[in-house]
Computed example of a mutant assay.
Amino acid sequence: MSGEESCLQAICDLKSRHDFLLFVDEAHSFGLHPERTLCTKLGVTDQVDFVMTTLSKSTASIGGVVATSHAFKTFLQVEANAYLFQAAIPPADVAAIIAAMDVIEETPQLLESLWSKVSYMRGKLCDLGLDVGHGTSPIIPVFIRDSDTLLRMGQDMFDQGIFTTSVAYPVVKHSEVRFRFILNESHSYDQIDRTVDVLEKLGRRYGVIAYEDAPHGADVEMR
Rank of each mutant, 00 (worst) to 15 (best):
E5D: 12
A10F: 02
C12Y: 03
C12K: 01
D13F: 04
D13C: 06
K15F: 07
S16W: 02
H18C: 05
H18S: 02
D19V: 05
D19S: 15
F20Y: 13
L21E: 02
F23C: 06
F23H: 11
A27I: 04
H28E: 13
S29W: 03
H33Y: 15
R36E: 15
C39L: 09
C39Y: 13
L42F: 03
G43L: 00
T45R: 08
T45G: 01
D46W: 06
Q47T: 08
F50C: 01
V51A: 01
S56P: 03
V65E: 11
V65N: 08
V66G: 02
A67Q: 14
T68D: 10
T68L: 01
A71P: 00
F72I: 05
A80W: 15
A82R: 08
Q86I: 00
P90K: 08
P91T: 11
A92H: 14
A92P: 01
V94S: 04
A95T: 03
I97Q: 10
I97L: 02
I97G: 05
I98R: 04
D102L: 05
E105P: 00
Q109F: 06
L110N: 08
L110C: 05
L111C: 02
V118S: 09
S119I: 04
S119H: 03
R122Q: 10
G123A: 05
C126L: 14
C126Q: 12
L128K: 15
S137W: 10
P138F: 13
I139F: 12
I139N: 03
I139V: 14
F143E: 07
D146G: 05
D146R: 07
D148E: 14
L150T: 05
L150P: 11
L151G: 00
G154A: 09
G154D: 11
D159F: 09
I162Y: 04
T165N: 12
S166D: 13
A168K: 05
K173S: 11
F179T: 12
R180Q: 14
I182F: 01
N184P: 00
S188F: 01
Y189A: 08
D190R: 12
Q191T: 14
V196Q: 13
D197N: 11
K201F: 07
R204M: 00
R205L: 13
D213Y: 05
D213S: 13
A218R: 14
M222F: 14
